[in-house]
């Protein structure tokens, strides 16, 4: 049974057709990389898959059930990481992570361990506004280490992350896929640590006409 599937999606933005009758099925263990030039609708597709945006036509199914009819279950099993990290400047790294985990109904006894794993050890008590852009994103990404949501939808997760961090994240993705989760991500970089045969690619074309 596919974890998440899209049926006949059509997306129109600013009177421009981004994609039409797009159907896809994502199974446990899949790593899907969505490629395409800027403005080709990668973010729109991810937002539609996560239920944040409504498609012009078509619908999204979670385990063969419409996501609007199983909102709570779908959201419990979904981890969405967007362009905006959702980290509050006024709170410390640890408070941010604790809140983000609790908001999604997770226990958060180990936030210090997660922060250490994402290389933020020693910054737990620092206000997010005092941290760099990369560290900011890392606070939000630390949630990935508390992985009980099988569906990961990640929009440009490597932005502002250093090389070492990127390879750490890539290993985390393949481990997640091996455990029966699925990862849907957009990135302009090639995934280095993940074997090419493990990654399925969706390429969105940009029609200049």
């Amino acid at each position: 049974m596919p974890l998440i599937s899209a049926v006949n999606l059509t997306c129109i933005r600013e009177e421009r057709l981004l994609f039409d009758e797009l159907s896809l099925e994502i199974y446990p263990g899949d790593i899907i990389q969505i490629e395409g030039p800027n403005g080709s609708g990668k973010t729109s597709l991810l937002r539609i898959l996560s239920g944040l945006s409504q498609p012009y036509d078509g619908h999204i199914l979670y385990k063969n059930e419409k996501i609007s009819s199983c909102r709570e279950e779908f959201h419990q099993n979904l981890l969405y990481f967007g362009h905006l990290s959702g980290v509050k400047d006024e709170m410390t790294a640890e408070e941010n992570l604790d809140f983000n985990l609790a908001l999604h109904g997770n226990k958060n006894e180990e936030s210090l361990t997660y922060l250490a794993k994402i290389n933020l050890a020693g910054f737990e008590e620092s206000l997010a506004s005092h941290l760099s852009a990369g560290q900011h994103r890392r606070i939000a990404l630390a949630r990935l280490y508390h992985n009980n949501a099988p569906i990961w939808i990640l929009d440009e997760p490597f932005t502002a992350i250093d090389k070492q961090g990127v390879s750490g994240l890539e290993q985390l993705f393949s481990a997640h896929a091996q455990r029966g989760g699925c990862v849907i991500l957009t990135t302009h970089q090639d995934l280095i640590s993940i074997k090419p045969e493990q990654v399925k690619k969706i390429t969105l074309d940009y029609d200049y006409l």
């Binding site: 709570e72 979904l78 905006l84 959702g86 980290v87 509050k88 908001l103 999604h104 109904g105």
Partner: peptide, 15 residues
């Protein structure tokens, strides 16, 4: 809305 935490709230399993 500006820092994205609103999106996260909308995606939370809580009503």
């Amino acid at each position: 809305h500006l820092d994205g935490s609103l999106e996260q709230m909308l995606l939370s399993p809580h009503p």
